[in-house]
Design a binder for these strands. Sequence first.
DNA 1: CCAGACGTTGTT
DNA 2: GTCTGG
DNA 3: CCAGACGTTGTT
DNA 4: GTCTGG
Length: 230
Amino acid sequence: MCGRYAFFSPAEAVKRTFALDLMPALSPRYNIAPTQSVPALRVAAEGSRTLVMLHWGLVPRWAKERAIGNRMINARSETVAEKPAYRDAFCHRRCLVLADGWYEWQAAPGGKQPWFVRLRDPRPIAFAGLWERWKDPAGGELLESCTIVTTEASESIRRIHDRMPVVLAEQSWDRWMDPAFSDTAALSKTLGPYEAKELQAWQVSRLVNAPKNEGPKLIEAEGSGTAVGA
DNA sequence: CCAGACGTTGTT
DNA sequence: GTCTGG
DNA sequence: CCAGACGTTGTT
DNA sequence: GTCTGG
């Protein structure tokens, strides 16, 4: 699945990769956690790609309080078109959640062992996302939030975990953002990097477990001979 | 009809 | 154990 | 996802 | 808002 990730590529590289007109400089992040504000791409009314900051944890329109979003951090691709919490967003509000890689935790003696997963050929990536607009019925506050779509893990990642985020290949970005696209079955394997040759993973420090920790040391390889061509 | 959930993951 | 917050 | 709190009253 | 369960 995807409950924690990193996004640290420089603004220039992100701007170029995603063909953005404007790209604000963002602090490099190595420990992005649910409830935080995360960078995402949307297609504006006139068709241009826009970078926006969205609250991670989709708050449905009918929610009475924003905390509902705390458990809406992921949406299963297999059921996203039908689930009441996501159905409407799936039909009308797609987005790309920008990242460089993500963390998976594996049960291990002495506690959870974190791994970092990214492309073997390192570059910024896009997770398939949905977004929603919510107005707090108590204070009237407006909030735009998002969730990350997940799928079954590819064979080689399954040694760590059985789910992973939907990583979209460049040629799939516009396809996903088009509401006419509804082939959820295709989300698992055919829209992006999925095979072992495209992904790699390695063990990292348990420092990443605490959301308050930050910095490039969180993705440094730790342990001996633990890297897998995931 | 009204009340209550609306989600995913992992573990047992 | 379970929920909330980051 | 993991970490950390989980409660009330009264006083400062 | 909409669906499920009682």
